[in-house]
């Protein structure tokens, strides 16, 4: 039995959060459950010795993405929940559930038959300092880092442009009429 007790607790917490997030009726509740799941994953990372990744997970997912999702829910007036049956046993929904189950079955099968997973013994946690991560980012992975930075900037701009209000669709205010006159 190689799994520690804490690992089990955290795994259960993560999975329970994920199941809750995907099954609850009210969107806000879903988002909160998602936070629990993300936080559980972050704790799992810490448990596995990846402190930096765990903290980044906590910061980005719990701190930013979850909040972003809550905002999106509020802005799309989804806070009231999905009135018409969100889980109506429609053919499409059943097909989706079956597909997901099949994927799980295949993945479990892959893990069971994998030699790597079976051989992987419990080794001592590698001692990773921030210093090493910093060096790795600045030397070996500096190019991906730059690319990521560029991509983040582009995504930022893209998100702003997408979320901008289209002025032309609002003839109510005067500017649109003025533009029309000028044209």
């Amino acid at each position: 039995m190689g799994m520690t007790f804490s690992f089990l607790i955290l795994a259960i917490m993560t999975l329970a959060g994920g199941v809750a997030a995907m099954t609850m009726r009210r969107l806000v509740h879903c988002a909160l459950a998602l936070v629990v799941s993300f936080a559980g994953l972050a704790a799992l990372y810490l448990n596995l010795g990846a402190e930096f990744a765990g903290l980044a997970q906590l910061l980005v997912y719990v701190g930013a993405i979850a909040i972003l999702i809550v905002f999106a829910i509020l802005l799309t007036r989804g806070g009231e929940g999905e009135p018409e049956g969100s889980f109506s046993p429609s053919p499409a929904g059943i097909a989706g559930a079956v597909a997901a189950l099949a994927v799980f079955a295949v993945l479990t099968w892959a893990v069971e038959t994998s030699s790597v997973a079976r051989a992987g013994a419990a080794v001592a946690a590698p001692q990773t300092t921030m210093r090493e991560i910093g060096f790795a980012l600045m030397q070996r992975y500096v190019l991906p880092l730059e690319v990521i930075a560029l991509m983040l900037t582009a995504a930022l701009i893209g998100a702003v442009i997408l979320a901008l209000r289209e002025k032309r669709n609002e003839p109510a205010d005067g500017t649109a009429q003025k533009q029309g006159l000028r044209a």
């Binding site: 795994a11 993560t14 999975l15 994920g18 199941v19 997030a21 995907m22 099954t23 799941s37 994953l41 799992l44 889980f87 929904g93 097909a95 989706g96 559930a97 597909a99 997901a100 189950l101 994927v103 799980f104 993945l107 479990t108 893990v111």
Partner: peptide, 15 residues
Amino acid sequence: VSALLFSIGLAGALT
């Protein structure tokens, strides 16, 4: 755990 989480996410995304 990861496979389970993946499947949960996939099921949600599909349904």
